[in-house]
Amino acid sequence: MDPAQPNPAPARPAPPGAPARPAAPAADAPIRRLLVPLGTLAAVGSAFAYVGLVDPNEPGHYPVCPLFRLTGVYCPGCGGLRSAHDFITGHFAAAVHSNALAVAGYLLFGVLWVLWAVRSARGLPLRIAPSDRQWWLIGSAVLIFSVVRNLPFGSVLAP
């Protein structure tokens, strides 16, 4: 013990039923804060790796879209697996042709994941709270995409 420093007061135990005090932050806190973003990246990366290895263009590997099977109408997700396969194998034009909305989603996920990881490493929360207007705009964009890809002039958006 350093004689220049006063004796620290001994820690008193918490009374029964009182919440425990949080532990002092450890040196590995930035790593611990990155566990959830890294786990999410591992899960998404594993799914992309599987789709990259198992080609959805070959019949029998994945189920057919139920909406397309029953009605012949493309939903907003139709072509998403083919798009992911093309994206992960580096065929970006084919990925956009299979499902342009999905490619935009992959890119948006990448940007948001980097933002999430950086903020988590710094101990800051990531708060994304779209307004009602923004949700309506997102829903409208998905609906317009779905309708246009099923019309003759929008066939370029069809998978």
Rank of each mutant, 00 (worst) to 15 (best):
Asn57Tyr: 13
Ala93Met: 04
Asp86His: 07
Asp28Leu: 13
Leu112Ser: 13
Pro56Ile: 11
Ile144His: 06
Ala27His: 12
Phe87Ala: 15
Gly39Arg: 01
Leu41Glu: 03
Ile144Phe: 10
Ile128Tyr: 11
Val118Met: 13
Gly72Met: 10
Ile144Gln: 06
Ser120Pro: 14
Thr71Glu: 06
Val111Gln: 01
Arg127Thr: 13
Ala27Glu: 09
His85Ser: 03
Pro76Tyr: 07
Ala84Glu: 05
Arg122His: 09
Leu124His: 15
Val44Glu: 01
Gly105His: 12
Gly77His: 09
Ser98Leu: 05
Val54Gly: 07
Arg127Ser: 14
Ala24Val: 08
Pro59Met: 02
Ala100Phe: 03
Pro37Ile: 00
His91Val: 00
Phe48Ile: 10
Leu35Asp: 00
His97Arg: 15
Trp136Cys: 06
Ala141Arg: 05
Pro130Ser: 08
Gly154Pro: 09
Ser98Gln: 08
Pro76Gln: 10
Gly45Glu: 05
Thr71Ile: 02
Phe48Trp: 02
Leu101Tyr: 10
Val103His: 10
Val44Thr: 10
Asp55Trp: 08
Asp132Gly: 15
Gly105Tyr: 07
Ala42Tyr: 06
Gly90Cys: 01
Tyr106Leu: 07
Ala42Gly: 11
Val73Glu: 03
Leu137Gln: 14
Val96Gly: 00
Ala49Met: 09
Asn99Met: 03
Thr89His: 13
Pro22Tyr: 05
Arg119Val: 03
Val118Cys: 06
Ser120Leu: 00
Leu124Phe: 12
Gly139Lys: 10
His97Asn: 01
Leu38Gln: 08
Arg122Tyr: 12
Asn150Tyr: 04
Phe48Pro: 02
Ser46Gly: 15
Pro63His: 11
Ala100Asp: 02
Gly52Val: 01
Ser131Val: 10
Ser98Trp: 03
Pro56Ser: 02
Val148Arg: 04
Val96Met: 06
Asn150Lys: 07
Val54Glu: 06
Ala94Cys: 06
Asn99Arg: 09
Arg133Glu: 13
Phe153Glu: 00
Val64Trp: 01
Ala49Glu: 11
Val111Arg: 08
Leu137Gly: 08
Gln134Tyr: 09
Arg69Cys: 00
Pro66Arg: 04
Tyr74Val: 00
Gly105Pro: 01
Arg33Lys: 10
Val36Gln: 12
Gly79His: 05
Leu81Pro: 02
Leu53Met: 14
Arg33Pro: 03
Ala104Pro: 01
Val44Asp: 05
His61Val: 05
Gly39Cys: 10
Gly39Asp: 02
Ala100Asn: 11
Val54Ile: 11
Gly60Asn: 08
Phe87Ser: 04
Ala100Met: 13
Pro66Lys: 10
Arg21Ile: 00
Leu107Lys: 00
Val147Tyr: 01
Pro30His: 08
Val96Asn: 00
Gly72Glu: 12
Ala43Gly: 07
Ala129Phe: 11
Trp135Met: 12
Phe145His: 05
Val73Arg: 14
Phe48Tyr: 13
Ser131Cys: 13
Leu38Tyr: 03
Arg32Cys: 05
